[in-house]
């Protein structure tokens, strides 16, 4: 949306947005800000933020929630070779957060923590029968369509995508925060009725498409 605004308005009004969107998931994004955070605004899952930035060292403060993303627990229904009930949880992510809160986690479940999101596609293929995995979109919608996985009853969890501002944007006369939020809100509401341009803009960004595809357990092949 900000890229679209930038393309449409930078010539006429002088407004300029630079959007960085290279990481595979929210945790990797917040981790990448630890060494330096020169963003004015950040958008990501609150659940990953609080687990990645436990000491609250990042200079970011919460402005408000933007949207929810669905997360579910899936159980592998491949032919059983024995009863297992491990639950695979990506460490310091919204999956870990759901595990902490205990929502729809069976009492007998044993946590199987992993720390590298790139193994997710292989993990999904090799997960033992009876084991579970906590997955958010886009992987969640991919697993929903597979016959060898079933959603655990009442395991839906809404991941909260939030807008965060750098400490400096809240300082008086440093940044036109009300104007920024009014533009964001107006554009957001317009996009709810007319969003066809957003896909075209994202599709042009090869790094984004590669990261998005990986997050869905898929592969984006560059178009030469």
């Amino acid at each position: 949306m900000f890229r679209d605004l930038n393309e449409r308005l930078s010539n006429s009004s002088g407004i300029q947005f630079t959007v960085y969107c290279d990481e595979i998931n929210g945790r990797a994004f917040f981790d990448s800000l630890r060494s330096s955070c020169d963003l004015d605004f950040a958008i990501g899952p609150l659940e990953a933020l609080v687990l990645s930035d436990g000491g609250q060292k990042l200079p970011l403060r919460l402005i408000g929630p933007l949207c929810g993303e669905r997360q579910h627990i899936y159980v592998s229904t491949k032919k059983r070779a024995g009863v297992r009930s491990g639950v695979w949880v990506f460490d310091r992510s919204s999956a870990k957060f759901q595990y902490h809160v205990g929502l729809a986690i069976p009492r007998s479940a044993q946590e199987q923590s992993f720390d590298d999101a790139r193994i997710v596609p292989d993990l999904v293929e090799s997960i033992p029968p009876g084991d579970m995995v906590i997955a958010w979109d886009p992987l969640s919608s991919v697993l929903k369509g597979r016959k060898d996985f079933a959603v655990i009853h009442q395991s839906d969890y809404t991941v909260h995508f939030v807008l965060l501002g750098h400490l400096r944007v809240f300082r008086k006369n440093q940044f036109p925060l009300q104007a920024f939020l009014a533009v964001l809100l107006t554009e957001w509401r317009r996009r709810q009725h007319r969003n066809e341009g957003l896909f075209k803009i994202l599709r042009r960004d090869h790094r984004f498409m590669t990261a998005f595809a990986l997050g869905a357990g898929q592969r984006w092949i560059p178009e030469v």
Binding site: P65, C67, D137, S141, F161, Q192
Partner: peptide
């Protein structure tokens, strides 16, 4: 995903 994000809006 774009459709879902805009549909599940808190704004």
């Amino acid at each position: 995903k774009i459709e879902a994000d805009l549909k599940n809006s808190f704004l």
